[in-house]
């Protein structure tokens, strides 16, 4: 049994890390907004999903223009991501303006309800826009961009491993996601705007007294978080092909778990959390059946993120890299 698990481990790691980077970038959006507003932005998973649709639509447009195959694919995808990020960033800012800002002083429960509302609204807007444009189908299949598979002949290196393979898009997703995270980290820690964000997250009133424009900073946070979420949606669509309006929900749930696991409010924690959740999920998908002697199988993989969430909240609510906070009384 263990041999089997070990044999497939490299493949599990490839798949897990790909998925994990997607979770990680989405988790960044949750963490940034939570850090600054202390609000779970339920709509964030939907922003990601919207990004996936916008990006795929742009790529399909490129494809119908005949650009795919003539222009370098990486450039095309980057352009699509860039455009998508702009749109979803703007959507994020709009959502904050309309649905969250008026409720900043309202009870938390009301703000959460508004967030759920936005999330549902977005799902359906994307659903019927897609059905309009796509002959009544609510799912979308993007153009195939990265056709080749790379084989890693691990069995030649060590006899106890099987070969692993990944789509070339894996490398692209990985490199782009890592680049996004590095840019964000530098932005938050090294720039004036990043400093304002950290200041508002720590103490909104004091930050305002020090001359930070709180509303602008919150808008900026939403823009960046949502732009990243949208861009990740494009990456997801490129890597996994088919998308539907409901992918944001469960993915959002897992990404949120990643954010909590890493320590909510903590950017590096979100990345760590995302990778852990991604790998655990893929490991579960590959080995649950073997491990439990076929009692339960891969269909239970989604349960794991949830169990991790509960365990973390119970035993280490501040997360792996977060700091424990007490509510001031």
């Amino acid at each position: 049994m263990l041999e089997n698990i070990l044999r497939t481990l490299p493949q599990v790691l490839f798949d897990g890390i790909t998925l994990g980077t997607v979770y990680a970038v989405i988790a960044l959006g949750y963490t940034m907004v939570y850090g600054i507003l202390k609000l779970i932005n339920f709509a964030h998973g939907e922003i990601f999903m919207t990004g996936a649709f916008i990006g795929t639509a742009i790529l399909l447009a490129f494809s119908s223009l005949g650009w795919i195959g003539t222009l370098p694919i990486i450039i095309l995808v980057l352009v699509a991501m860039f455009l998508t990020a702009g749109v979803t960033g703007a959507i994020g800012v709009g959502i904050e303006r309309i649905a969250y800002r008026p409720l900043r002083k309202a009870p938390k429960l009301i703000a959460l309800i508004s967030a759920i509302g936005i999330s549902f609204l977005l799902q359906d807007l994307v659903r019927f826009t897609t059905e309009f444009a796509n002959d009544g189908n609510f799912y979308l299949i993007g153009p195939e961009l990265f056709k080749s598979n790379i084989n890693v002949p691990l069995s030649k290196m060590a006899s106890f491993l099987s070969d692993a393979s990944f789509k070339t898009s894996f490398l692209f997703v990985l490199v782009t996601a890592v680049a996004l995270m590095i840019i964000l980290d530098v932005f938050v820690n090294k720039t004036k705007w990043g400093m304002a964000m950290r200041a508002v997250a720590q103490d909104r009133d004091t930050a305002a007294l020090m001359g930070v424009n709180v509303n602008k900073t919150i808008s900026l946070t939403f823009f960046i978080g949502s732009a990243l979420g949208g861009a990740t949606g494009v990456l997801f669509a490129v890597q996994y092909g088919t998308i539907d309006p409901y992918i944001g929900f469960i993915l959002g749930l897992k990404a949120f778990t990643a954010a909590v696991l890493g320590g909510i409010g903590n950017i590096r924690g979100a990345v760590l959390g995302g990778l852990i959740i991604g790998v655990v999920e893929m490991f579960a998908a590959a080995n649950l059946s073997t491990l439990t002697n076929h009692v339960i199988g891969a269909e239970y993989k989604d349960v794991f993120a949830f169990i991790i969430l509960i365990l973390v909240l119970l035993f280490k609510p501040e997360g792996l890299l977060g700091k424990a906070l007490h509510e001031k009384v």
């Binding site: 309309i98 508004s114 509302g117 936005i118 019927f128 309009f132």
Partner: peptide, 23 residues
């Protein structure tokens, strides 16, 4: 168009109701 058929728009309607009532 069938797409806009109100019986398919539950999420939209409920989402909107939640936001409007919250606000």
């Amino acid at each position: 168009p069938d797409v806009l058929s109100p019986s398919k728009m539950q999420r939209f309607i409920f989402g909107l109701l939640l936001i409007l009532f919250a606000l």
